[in-house]
Simulated assay, not measured.
Amino acid sequence: MKIPHKAHVALVDGERFLFLRNDGQIFDPKLSKVEEPDLEATNFSAGVKHQDQGGQISGSTDLNELAHAAAAAEWLNAKALANAFDELVVVADPKTLGEMRRHYHKELEKRLVGEVDKALTHEPLEKIGEVLANA
């Protein structure tokens, strides 16, 4: 995957959110941490579609994780509207990415240059760069 020079990367899961920047080249990303926002998960309606009894019993639905995904998307929306970045790649596990997509603002969608559905928040930055380069 092409990660443009100075493009930002949002690395998200149900608990953690890292905002990174590619200081390397398009096919050889060198990621650096810009910020790790402390999000307040307030949108618990985000997981309404996941509140089936089966999901609750099996524990496969965690409303806190889905609310965190919604909060991450809202944070990215605010940054996009403030012109804080031009290009963005979102990397998140499939459930988080699906929830985030439901909350993307049109301005954020214009700035998206890619999405990767992988859980990488606990990997070192070098490994994340390799995965993105090979995606």
Rank of each mutant, 00 (worst) to 15 (best):
L39K: 02
L120K: 06
L125A: 09
A92W: 02
V34M: 12
F44Q: 11
K106G: 06
N22V: 07
H103Q: 14
E87S: 09
L81Y: 11
H5N: 14
L81N: 12
P124Q: 11
E123R: 14
L88Y: 00
A84N: 07
H68P: 02
D23A: 09
E87P: 04
L108P: 00
T121F: 06
A72D: 02
G47T: 09
P29C: 11
K6G: 01
E40Y: 07
D52H: 10
L108C: 02
L31R: 11
Q25W: 12
D93S: 12
K49G: 07
L97P: 05
G129N: 04
G47A: 15
S58L: 11
A10T: 04
F85H: 10
P37M: 03
I3L: 15
D38V: 11
K2G: 02
L18K: 13
N134V: 06
E36H: 04
A67V: 10
P124D: 11
G98F: 08
R102Q: 12
N43S: 13
E115G: 02
L76H: 03
T121Y: 01
V113H: 00
G14H: 03
A71Q: 01
K2C: 12
E65D: 10
V89D: 00
A71L: 03
V34I: 15
T121A: 09
K49L: 10
P4M: 01
A133M: 01
E99G: 00
K95R: 15
K79Q: 15
I26W: 05
E130F: 03
G24K: 10
N83S: 11
G54V: 08
K95P: 01
G54N: 10
H103T: 05
Q56T: 08
E107T: 09
D23P: 00
N43V: 13
E35W: 08
L63R: 05
R111W: 04
P4C: 08
A73K: 02
D28G: 12
S60R: 11
D23M: 15
A119Y: 09
M1S: 12
P29E: 01
K118Q: 15
H105V: 01
F44D: 06
A82T: 09
F44P: 05
K95C: 00
E123I: 01
A119E: 10
N22Y: 06
V90P: 01
R21P: 05
L18Q: 13
M1V: 09
D52R: 07
V34F: 00
G47M: 06
V113C: 14
F27R: 14
A119S: 14
G129Y: 07
K127R: 15
V9C: 01
G98T: 04
E65C: 03
N43F: 09
L120P: 04
N83F: 13
A119K: 15
